[in-house]
Simulated assay, not measured.
Amino acid sequence: MKKLLFGALMLSFLSACNSDNVSNQTEGSENTPAISGTALQRGCASEEIRQAALKNSSELRQKYSEIEARTERFENDMKLGKVLSDGTVEIPVVVNVLYRTSAENVSDARIAEQIAVLNADYAGTNTDVSKIPSEFQGVKAGDVKVRFRLANVVRKSTTKTSWSTNDAMKKASTGGIDATSPSNYLNIWTVGNMGQILGYATFPESSGLWNDGVVIASPYFGKTGASSPFNLGRTATHEVGHYLNLRHIWGDANCGNDLVADTPTQTTSNAGKPSYPLYNTCSGVQRSVMFMNYMDYVDDAAMFMFSAGQKTRMQSVVASSGARSGLRIN
């Protein structure tokens, strides 16, 4: 069983950051995942950005430790029946659209489409949920009990041709759009181009800060007009997972720890559309990996589940005592 070890984790945060776009060395992989017919692979900078932020801020490190300790207590209390879910939480969403071209100015219809994808994926009613292998049926999350409601759309024209992960899109003074009350709203920014990065998000220790929220490159936002193979709205599903305290399923390390007991340990990220079963070997143990999890790097069409353990982690941060409890008051 994967266990939370604060010392080892904090040492990893204080070490040099590893880019999410660089493949890790694998301990052992018996199947090579098939790459779809495109050179583009999913790139998410969330963990890299988080490591840098934690390294530079003792306050964030303290908040991180408190959140993980609270999450561990919540998980244990859930197992013992000492705490019940607070019921379904509806998160109000503000979409901030920064656009240079008409294609980047994502339509209201496409925004509604993206909200619908989030609601289906987090409710476990996505149409491809039937593809979950029988091996993982017993640990599927089902309804995470988190819903999303569009509260507002803010649009701003820009002359910028590309954006980086320096959060410039989140400040009016640097050409972006200021967040709307980030303690109480999930802010999502769409921008035209971030190179190989599809999106990134802040984690719960950043709750309420000016830069708190999710960024998605407009070609991968929503479905209609989005770029294949990331045209089913799953980039938002993945990034909102980070926002609700999920790590990448491989733990951003060779045979790493994502702090979730029911997701099999895997050597590294998977890409494209792997064939099931896909086996990895970590610490001499061969496992079938859960590459179809939303927190892996596969194509949108190949990801369609959260695990029960991931559900508990997310419920912990949106609970009335959680780090993102402010989202509950709207």
Rank of each mutant, 00 (worst) to 15 (best):
128 D>L: 11
128 D>P: 00
130 S>R: 10
133 P>R: 10
134 S>P: 00
138 G>H: 13
139 V>W: 01
142 G>R: 02
142 G>F: 05
143 D>W: 07
145 K>A: 13
148 F>P: 02
152 N>I: 00
152 N>Q: 15
154 V>Y: 01
155 R>K: 14
155 R>H: 10
155 R>V: 10
157 S>V: 08
157 S>H: 12
158 T>C: 08
159 T>H: 05
162 S>R: 12
163 W>V: 07
164 S>A: 15
166 N>G: 10
167 D>T: 08
168 A>H: 11
173 S>K: 12
175 G>R: 08
178 D>L: 04
180 T>F: 09
180 T>G: 00
181 S>H: 08
181 S>M: 07
186 L>W: 09
187 N>T: 05
187 N>K: 01
189 W>L: 03
193 N>D: 15
197 I>D: 09
197 I>L: 04
197 I>T: 15
199 G>A: 09
201 A>G: 02
203 F>W: 07
203 F>D: 00
205 E>R: 08
205 E>S: 05
205 E>G: 01
208 G>Y: 06
209 L>A: 13
210 W>R: 10
211 N>Q: 14
211 N>T: 11
218 S>E: 14
221 F>S: 07
223 K>Q: 13
225 G>C: 08
227 S>Q: 15
229 P>N: 02
230 F>C: 13
232 L>A: 13
234 R>L: 13
234 R>C: 01
235 T>C: 13
241 G>S: 12
243 Y>R: 04
245 N>G: 00
246 L>K: 00
247 R>P: 00
248 H>R: 07
248 H>M: 00
249 I>C: 09
250 W>F: 14
257 N>R: 08
260 V>T: 14
262 D>W: 12
263 T>V: 15
